[in-house]
């Protein structure tokens, strides 16, 4: 496999420092700091209800942090300036737009030139094999195809930072395996920086280059774990199982 996983000299893309969030008196996040390298695939795992989604919403600036800051390329993150994309937990295709218009949605908001929009849309459609559904509405698609459209829409933004919040939470195992490979393929093809939140440890080990393990509420980073296993990963290999066990141990709060 590529040697880049061994010596990682990619520049730092996202810098999170001392991120803290209170909702009234509820302390959700406590002094979270970490870096993400350009093009890195980071998975965030943690016990249920530890504030994973809050964490992500802070990164997208849906919430403002109580303390701390998020910098992208050294600048304070701002959805208007930076290119952020989000795949939400629930299906979020815009039902009144066709598949191709869904893919165009964010690009039009960013006011990219028309040729560039078309180039990217065509590329994503081809990468995902969705050409035949180009003119279809999300309501006419199966759940998994709709989810692929949403993931495609996020990648089409070629974002500085792509945030995914348990995008496969509701799916059965077959679809999940399929879509996990799909996401890896897009990630490698487009070179996006990804933060992927999941409660599925196996998924985290399968996908990530780095795993952030969050503690119970108020969440801090319990461990930052490098994952150098070569892609494509064998979920039955000894190293894979060991890493999975290790993360499971770390997450246990009972």
């Amino acid at each position: 496999m590529k040697s880049e996983t061994v010596i990682d000299n990619r520049p730092v893309k996202v810098q999170v420092s001392h991120l803290t969030k209170y909702f009234g008196s509820l302390h959700v996040l406590d002094d979270v700091s970490f870096d993400i390298k350009k093009g890195e695939f980071v998975c965030v795992v943690g016990p249920t209800g530890c504030g994973k989604t809050t964490f992500l919403n802070l990164l997208t600036k849906i919430y403002e942090p109580s303390e701390g800051e998020l910098r992208i390329d050294g600048e304070l993150a701002d959805p208007k300036k930076h290119n952020l994309a989000f795949v939400f937990q629930e299906p979020s295709a815009l039902p009144w737009l066709t598949v191709e218009d869904n893919l165009r949605f964010g690009l039009k908001i960013k006011k990219l030139p028309k040729e560039e929009i078309e180039r990217r849309v065509d590329r994503i459609l081809k990468l995902l094999g969705l050409e035949e559904f180009r003119k279809a509405y999300p309501g006419q698609l199966s759940t998994s195809t709709e989810q692929r459209v949403i993931i495609g829409r996020a990648f089409a933004m070629e974002p500085d930072l792509l945030l995914m919040d348990e995008p496969y939470g509701q799916m059965d195992i077959k679809l999940r395996f399929y879509l996990e490979d799909e996401v890896l393929r897009l990630w490698r093809e487009i070179g996006t920086t990804v933060v992927f939140i999941t409660h599925n440890i196996e998924e985290a080990v399968y996908l990530s280059e780095k795993v952030l393990i969050l503690s119970n509420k108020p969440a801090t980073i319990k461990e930052e774990l490098k994952n150098n296993l070569p892609y494509p990963r064998d979920i039955a290999s000894r190293e894979f199982v060991e890493m999975r066990k290790h993360i499971t141990e770390q997450i246990k709060w009972w």
Binding site: T60, K80, F86, G106, I109, K110, M157
Partner: peptide
């Protein structure tokens, strides 16, 4: 749907 609003907001829509 709040999620759809967030899709637009996170894309940088005013």
């Amino acid at each position: 749907n709040k999620t759809l609003i967030n899709v637009a907001r996170t894309s940088g829509a005013s």
